[in-house]
Computed example of a mutant assay.
Amino acid sequence: MTQTCGFVAIVGRPNVGKSTLMNRILGQKVSITSRRPQTTRHQVMGIKTEGEAQFIYVDTPGMHIMAKDRNKAINRFMNQAATQALRDVDCVVFIIDRTRWSDEDQVVLDKLAQVKAPVILAVNKVDWLEDKASLLPWLAKVGAKRDFAAILPISAKHGTNVPELEAEVAKHLPESIHFYPEDQVTDKSQRFLAAELVREKIMRQLGDELPYQMTVEIEEFRDTGKVIHISALILVERPGQKKILIGDKGERIKQIGREARLEMERAFDAKIMLNLWVKVKRGWSDDSRALKSLGYDLD
């Protein structure tokens, strides 16, 4: 049989379920998730090999409108990372949220006007719809916005119609040798995933209290064979944010560390010793050089 292999960009506005969909397809967590928009900041590759077909999914940051309060270097980086992922892909999965269409959905659609690859529209979170009868007219309405290769109502969280979505994507994979070994699931390192898991726990616990001027840098990642020793530095922009993150008598940071350590032990199948530190670094999120040194690099 002929092998097929291709790149598939998963795009959409913030918080529509792009990372949840990729994790569902892969059957394991590769992209972090939270209920907060803009949880994903980097392009994250997820690789799935099934028989002769290899799917290389690229999860992207949510494309968003650059409002005054979001016109920072990190926001520009996220929009550029999402746009860059559309280059040279074989297929695009464009995710929208149920029967809502926002200005940011339109931003994504406008970007897709320049893309020659087939675009599949995935209407996510349909399990949340109270009025199921409203779905068909809505699918017809959004279907008129572009000549989509297919339109599918899905639930990334529960897996509804996800196999059907994968079958549609498979139709657009070109004949090619596989680019990755069949047991490889992502291009990201354990070091990268460790930083992301710490950031996920912070976003989930403090999404409403702590703005987006927070990032995580791994200062030590040492595998002794029996234990992986990880030291993570959490950077914030103001002393008040540091205080919130540490919590009363250090309880908040301890809980974040506990949850991150348990998830790392599951992900890495090893015992983890995790140390977390918090440091104030003013203006890092609007400093291109600082961002590059922290791994926010499109190269």
Rank of each mutant, 00 (worst) to 15 (best):
R146S: 01
E220H: 13
E130W: 00
R222P: 00
R238K: 15
P137M: 05
N124L: 04
S176V: 08
D59L: 06
R289C: 01
A270Y: 10
P153A: 09
G27W: 08
G159D: 06
P61L: 13
K271I: 12
H178T: 13
I10G: 00
L109F: 04
K132S: 03
T224M: 01
V227Q: 10
D59W: 08
I74Q: 02
A195K: 07
I272N: 10
D187M: 12
T4W: 04
K188F: 04
A9I: 02
K145H: 12
H158W: 06
K157F: 11
N124A: 01
R100F: 11
G257C: 09
L21M: 01
L262M: 13
Y180N: 13
V227L: 09
R13H: 04
Q28D: 01
K281C: 02
W101G: 05
S189P: 15
L21K: 08
S155E: 10
I151F: 00
L112C: 03
R258I: 04
V44Q: 09
D269M: 03
R252C: 12
D147R: 14
L294V: 01
N79I: 03
I218N: 07
F94S: 03
E220G: 00
V93K: 02
L129R: 11
I95R: 05
R87H: 14
E217S: 05
A82H: 02
V227G: 02
V198I: 14
A267H: 14
N75H: 15
L274C: 09
R76Q: 15
P163M: 09
V16C: 11
T99M: 08
A82Y: 05
K188I: 00
K111I: 01
Q38L: 02
V11R: 08
